[in-house]
Design a protein around this nucleic acid. Sequence first.
DNA 1: TTATTGTAAATTGTCAACAATTTGCAATAT
DNA 2: ATATTGCAAATTGTTGACAATTTACAATAA
Lengths: 224, 224
Amino acid sequence: MTQTHEALRLLRSQSLSSVVQDEIEQRILSGAIAAGARINENGLASELGVSRGPIREACRGLVEMGLLTVIVNRGFFVREVTRKDAIDVYDVRSSLMRLAGETLAGQISDSQLGTLEKLVADMDLAENENDFENFYALNREFHDRIVDFAENDRLRALCEGLVKELHLYRRRSLLQGGGLNVSNHEHKEIVEALRSHDPTRAGAALERHIQAGKKRFLAAAEIE
Amino acid sequence: MTQTHEALRLLRSQSLSSVVQDEIEQRILSGAIAAGARINENGLASELGVSRGPIREACRGLVEMGLLTVIVNRGFFVREVTRKDAIDVYDVRSSLMRLAGETLAGQISDSQLGTLEKLVADMDLAENENDFENFYALNREFHDRIVDFAENDRLRALCEGLVKELHLYRRRSLLQGGGLNVSNHEHKEIVEALRSHDPTRAGAALERHIQAGKKRFLAAAEIE
DNA sequence: TTATTGTAAATTGTCAACAATTTGCAATAT
DNA sequence: ATATTGCAAATTGTTGACAATTTACAATAA
């Protein structure tokens, strides 16, 4: 009975809509619901054991997040991110990561530098062991931490959204798992720049890094 | 009867939810609904002549846009943008406008330069006549055009959202009407930089311009 | 006076049902 | 064979109703 108790406790702090929204988001990003596919409100409602109300509310939120599009009288569809969209997103993201670097360089603490260094070291290990999955997770945390440390809530929210949007494209192409040949050397450069507390240098290092990622991504997308 | 006909035609291309969403957004940005105020679903529903369903769907969208927040069992509230929030948004916006400048410098056409020059000239006129309202409108179009011309859809959408968010804060303080002492000189510098097709110079000019706006804004907010 | 408790009203969260629209598909015509 | 027409089923858009929760406020106690 602890399960229903848990469920009830959850509903006092979260509405069904937000739980459903997270669930649908998960399914979209994992690829369980394909790009371009329609969200079947009835089907999803009965599968999740809720009515269509929360489903539709969740979908409205996901539309504003850029994960769904809506066509009147036809329904909600998983957004199809074009190559041009992905390029646009990469450019915006590189610009924002540059801001993160510029901001962070002037305020980063030794303990924060330590955290980043640890992540880079772990990535070295993962790289040597060809543990791509772990490398990917560490890489993602590395970027997340940099944004977190910059302490700009809007920046954090936007970066989070951009990464999700890229996933919407990425999962079609190989990417992530494949490692995309991310060089840990760039990460070391970034940490060095941050340690020097030079905003311009740190911003440039991060911008270069994302732009390099964009190039790798485009090269990989070319193949498919 | 042409009115109901119009209304019906509209509903075939737009859902009630999106119409309601625009309406609520308008009320928030105009200040008709105060920051921190709760959205009364029943009240708004009967006032707009719709049921609570579309109202709630619209609110979910506005939450994701950052104009509303939601508290379980308490409802939707107009977001209260703090001074720190505003600073964060300005920093993000200056970074994105820099990207717009960098992008645009390499691809701007003579006709587009002409459009921007015309706007600057009109602003000169409005400035001389102390027509603050017109100056504000022209100033806004100037920035919108620059973003449009950069042809990055994500950038455009994000900038639009950031401007709305700033309005949420600014409308309390004086803002716009007060003119905030925006110097047209900075605009001329921006156009010159774009004409030189130098990405770095154009990006820097725009970043400086928004940062200057941030300073003016903070100084004005200090007074209140 | 100030806190506390209890109850009624207001409000939100969710659901089920109905009307309007779209989709699927067979029957028909070209 | 291809296009067109005409239903029937599926699906979306919207509504009204009901349960759960919060808010407002009067009655009571300290």
